[in-house]
């Protein structure tokens, strides 16, 4: 893939991640699960896609920019701390979990969702100087299994479609010349 195409693709993924995290706010998930602060984590689909197709070196700046721009558009500085700690821990865990041969994209996605929640609770523990914030984490972890399955399903479908069109090379397979 040449540099221009690579840059355009990064921009596209960043825009997509911002859109997904914005649209997510309008999904009234707390009607289904009565836990404040629960989210689907749709932007994680982009992190997964970037991680699998472009590698951690490219996925990392996309994640950082998504968090910074996302909080600039709405949320403010405290939202930035939470999305960064959650996002970075999720990315680190998924980058490591991807190397485990027995996990599919579903397992990687679930671990990423759980890591995201853990990171956010860790941030609130530091911010409030309290271990009591962790009492809420088991509930969030239970939800993260379902949310991780959902984002994993969407990612798997996306990957299949992208690989089928030859738009993005599946890592470890030979790139088709177009």
């Amino acid at each position: 893939m040449n540099k221009t195409r690579h840059l355009a693709l990064c921009g596209l993924l960043l825009a997509l991640a911002l859109c997904l995290s914005y649209v997510e706010r309008f999904i009234p998930l707390d009607l289904l699960v009565p836990l404040p602060g629960v989210k689907l984590g749709l932007a994680n689909i982009v992190t997964l896609t970037a991680l699998y197709f472009l590698g951690a070196k490219t996925a990392f700046p996309i994640l950082i920019l998504r968090c910074v721009l996302g909080s600039a558009f709405g949320g403010g500085p405290s939202a930035l701390i939470f999305s960064l700690t959650g996002g970075l821990l999720a990315m680190a865990v998924m980058a490591a979990a991807r190397r485990l041969p027995f996990l599919s994209i579903y397992g990687v996605s679930i671990l990423g969702a759980a890591a995201h929640n853990t990171g956010q609770v860790l941030a609130s523990m530091v911010l409030l100087r309290s271990v009591y914030a962790a009492a809420y984490l088991p509930f969030l972890l239970a939800v993260s299994i379902a949310a991780g399955m959902l984002t994993g399903t969407v990612s798997a479908l996306t990957f299949r479609a992208l690989a089928a069109t030859g738009q993005l090379p599946a890592r470890g397979t030979k790139q088709k010349r177009t």
């Binding site: 996990l103 599919s104 299994i145």
Partner: peptide
């Protein structure tokens, strides 16, 4: 790249459940 849910993914789910259970029981 595995795109289908496989047996190994249950390990990931079990790990998350175990972590949540340990935490919840500590507070209980």
């Amino acid at each position: 790249m595995r795109l289908r849910f496989c047996k190994g993914d249950w390990i990931a789910i079990a790990a998350v459940v175990l972590f949540a259970a340990v935490l919840a029981s500590a507070f209980a």
